[in-house]
């Protein structure tokens, strides 16, 4: 997004897509620091330190991959939605996730990396995506819990990103956040409908919540003390709120929502702490987190295989569309000659 390939004056055409100047330069660095200190945005063609650019490419592309891979667990239920209304809603939601992936890929491309490179990094297993999408969607209630908790956690993460220092990323996040609210609400609405149903339906909601709660808490990443990128990202204005603070905010919001639904969150240590003004919670199983991040979750292989298959099966379509365009261009040239 945001004119990454535009033609700058006095540039050779092959330079046009190269993105921001990578040259380290003390005066530029000073100007960059001053912009951050003032709370100004950095834009695509502005000078930026190479490490800032690399961090953004890593974070934005991971975010984009997460949106695209995130279409898979929910897409799994489109043909099995219980009513036409729920099916329409789910279709719209999954389409939104695809759209979010596209906004974010485009924002990453402004940093001088191509879409194909990003996709290749995902398919080669070099780029990560959110660990949450490596869990299966076993019942219809999972679709509701994903909207309520997974998208709820995503919103907590994404709202501070609307103010991140890199303009194209911040603008993409504004758009994403506007749409994300629909995702969370439709999920809660779906669960409310199930909770008003029979005992088996209520049990389905409880089971789905039991399975998703802990993986959702892991979505906020390692504890601040363990976080690899936290401090530098905070200095650069890429990360405004720490992992643990966001996780706490999410838990504090989710507990009363679970009460409205009438379900129990699967953590016996989840208690209100008057002194802290927050809910205390049990310890997260970090061994499970790292296991899933490192490729050994329940669905890692299946998810990646589905993405690679879609890309490879679509290759002939992409090639045919380009061939058609070239033919049309030749025809136009011939007609003009």
């Amino acid at each position: 997004m945001y004119t990454q390939a535009i033609d700058l004056p006095n540039q050779q055409p092959e330079d046009a897509k190269r993105g921001p100047t990578a040259l380290e330069n003390a005066a530029y660095q000073e100007e960059f620091n001053a912009k951050l200190a003032r709370g100004d945005f950095i834009e695509a063609k502005d000078w930026m330190p190479e490490a800032y650019r690399k961090t953004l490419i890593r974070q934005i592309s991971q975010h984009a991959h997460s949106e695209i891979v995130g279409m898979l667990p929910e897409g799994n239920w489109i043909t099995r939605a219980p009513t036409l209304k729920r099916k329409s809603i789910l279709l719209a939601k999954v389409q939104d996730e695809g759209g979010h992936g596209l906004y974010l890929y485009a924002a990453a491309e402004t940093l001088g990396v191509s879409r194909d490179e990003l996709v290749e990094a995902l398919h080669a297993g070099k780029a990560k995506y959110s660990s949450i999408f490596n869990y299966p969607t076993l019942t219809w209630a999972d679709i509701g819990v994903i909207g309520w908790l997974v998208d709820g956690a995503a919103i907590m993460n994404q709202i501070p990103l609307c103010r991140c220092s890199y303009g194209p990323y911040a603008r993409a996040m504004v758009r994403v956040c506007k749409e994300e609210s629909f995702h969370q609400r439709q999920g809660f609405d779906l669960l409310l409908a199930l909770m008003r149903g029979n005992g088996a339906q209520r049990e389905m909601v409880q089971h789905a919540t039991n399975r998703w709660w802990w993986p959702v808490l892991m979505m906020f990443g390692p504890h601040d003390s363990e976080s690899q990128h936290g401090e530098q990202s905070a200095k650069w204005g890429i990360k405004r709120i720490s992992n643990d603070d966001l996780r706490q905010k999410f838990i504090d919001a989710a507990v009363p929502q679970a009460k409205v639904l009438g379900i129990t969150l699967p953590d016996p240590e989840l208690n209100w702490n008057d002194a802290r003004g927050h809910y205390d919670h049990g310890e997260i199983d970090w061994a499970e987190f790292w296991n899933v991040v490192n490729g050994n979750g329940p669905c890692n292989r299946e998810r990646l295989a589905a993405r690679v298959k879609a890309w490879e099966d679509g290759a002939w379509v992409r090639a045919a569309a380009l061939a058609y365009t070239r033919k049309q261009e030749l025809k136009t040239q011939a007609a003009a000659a």
Binding site: A5, I6, D7, P9, P13, K45, D96, E179
Partner: peptide, 27 residues
């Protein structure tokens, strides 16, 4: 249309090849 107007965001769309846009030099 599919990516940017799923919620009545628009009544008209322009698309321009990115390499046809000329921009001022940020430096």
């Amino acid at each position: 249309r599919d990516v940017y107007t799923r919620r009545q965001e628009g009544v008209s769309i322009w698309v321009v090849r990115a390499d046809h846009i000329h921009a001022s030099d940020p430096d």
